[in-house]
Amino acid sequence: MNEQYLTYYSHHLNRNVEMLIFGHWGYPVLVFPTTLGRYYQAKDHQLVAAARPLIEQGKIKLYCVDSIDADSWYGKHLHPSARVHNANQYYLFLHDELVPWVQRQCNAPRVAVSGCSFGGYHAANFAFRYPYKVSHLFTMGAAFDIRMFMDGYYDNNVYFNNPPDYLPQSNDSNLWNMDIVLGTCQADFCRPANERLSSILSHKNIRHWLDIRGYGTHDWPVWRDMFPQYLSRI
C-alpha cells in the first residue's frame, strides 16, 4: 500500500499542515482525526489498515489531514471569538486550498469526507457548509453541536459552524444528492447527537443512513468495523 507524507502550506492558516496519503489512485476521501488528534492517528489506530483492500484495489485514496483543534475549538487559552475565527480559517484552508488540490490530483469533481468522534464533526461541518464539494459524508461516533466549546459566546461565526443551527435553514440542492452515513452504537454517548441530526435530515427529506450498531462503544473497534463498509458505498 502506497504511503506518502506531505506538508501543505496554507495561506489561510499561515502554517504548514501535515498529512499522510494512502493509495496510488482512487476516489479521494479526507479523514479527520479525533479530539486534538494528529494526521497519523488513523494509521496508528488501524483505521487505515481496515480500509487496506479498497486502497490497494485503487478504489479509494485516503488523505489523513491534521487538525488545528488546539488553536480553535479546544484552545481554552483563547477568547471564544478567536477560537471560532481560527476554526473558520481551517475550513477555508480546506475549501480554498486543500480540496481543490486533491480534486486536481485525483481528477474528481467532489471528495468524500469522514472522521471518528470530533473528526466526524469536522467532516460533517465541512460537508454541510460546502455540499457542492462533497459527494459522501461518513461519520463514526460523532457529535455535531459545538456550542459547548464557546463558554456561552455566540455570534454568526458560531451559528455557521454549528450544523444543528444552520442545517435546518440550508436549501442547497447538493444536500439531497449527498450519500450520508451517521454511524453510532447503542452504548455510544454520542448516539443522541446522531439521532438528533438524523431527525433534522429526515425533516428535510434528505436521504441518509443512521447506522446504530448493537455492539461496541465510543471507541476504535466499532469504528474500524464501520469504516470499510461505508467506504464500499463509493
Rank of each mutant, 00 (worst) to 15 (best):
P100T: 09
Q46C: 09
L78T: 10
S67V: 06
R38K: 08
P80I: 13
D66N: 14
S117E: 14
K61W: 04
V65T: 02
N107M: 05
A87S: 05
L92N: 00
P53C: 04
A42I: 05
V99D: 02
D66G: 08
N107D: 14
Y63W: 15
Q103G: 13
H95C: 03
V84N: 01
R110W: 04
G75I: 04
S117T: 14
P100Q: 12
Y39I: 00
L54I: 09
S72L: 08
C106H: 15
Q46G: 08
R104F: 00
D71V: 03
L98K: 10
L47E: 10
I55G: 01
A49N: 07
L92P: 00
K61Y: 03
V48G: 03
F93T: 05
K43M: 09
V99A: 03
Y63R: 12
A51H: 06
K61D: 05
V113Y: 07
Q46W: 09
N88M: 11
Y63V: 12
R83V: 04
A112H: 11
S72T: 15
A82G: 03
H45M: 01
A112Q: 13
L62R: 08
C116H: 12
S72W: 04
L62A: 11
V113N: 04
V99R: 01
L62P: 08
S72C: 15
N88A: 05
G37F: 01
D44V: 05
E97Y: 10
N107L: 10
G37E: 04
F93E: 04
V99W: 01
Y39A: 07
T35S: 14
I68D: 06
A108Q: 09
L92V: 00
K43R: 14
V102E: 12
C116P: 09
Q105P: 06
L36Y: 06
R104G: 00
K76V: 13
S114P: 11
P80H: 13
Y90D: 01
A82E: 15
R52D: 05
C116L: 15
S72I: 09
E56S: 12
I68C: 03
R104H: 06
G115D: 06
A112D: 10
E97D: 13
A108K: 07
Q57H: 13
I68L: 06
W73Q: 05
L92W: 00
H85F: 12
L94G: 03
V99I: 15
Q103V: 14
D96M: 04
S72E: 10
G75S: 05
Q89N: 12
V48Y: 03
P53L: 02
E97M: 11
D96T: 04
A49Q: 13
L94I: 06
D96H: 14
A51L: 07
S72H: 06
D44S: 09
L94D: 02
C64W: 04
Y40E: 10
H85Y: 11
D69E: 15
V84K: 00
Q41I: 07
Y63G: 11
L62I: 14
I55C: 04
K61P: 01
A108W: 07
A82V: 07
D71E: 14
A42Y: 14
L36H: 08
Q105Y: 09
V113K: 06
S81M: 07
F93D: 06
C106R: 14
L98S: 05
Q57T: 12
G37V: 02
E56M: 13
V113H: 07
G75A: 13
D44Q: 12
V48Q: 01
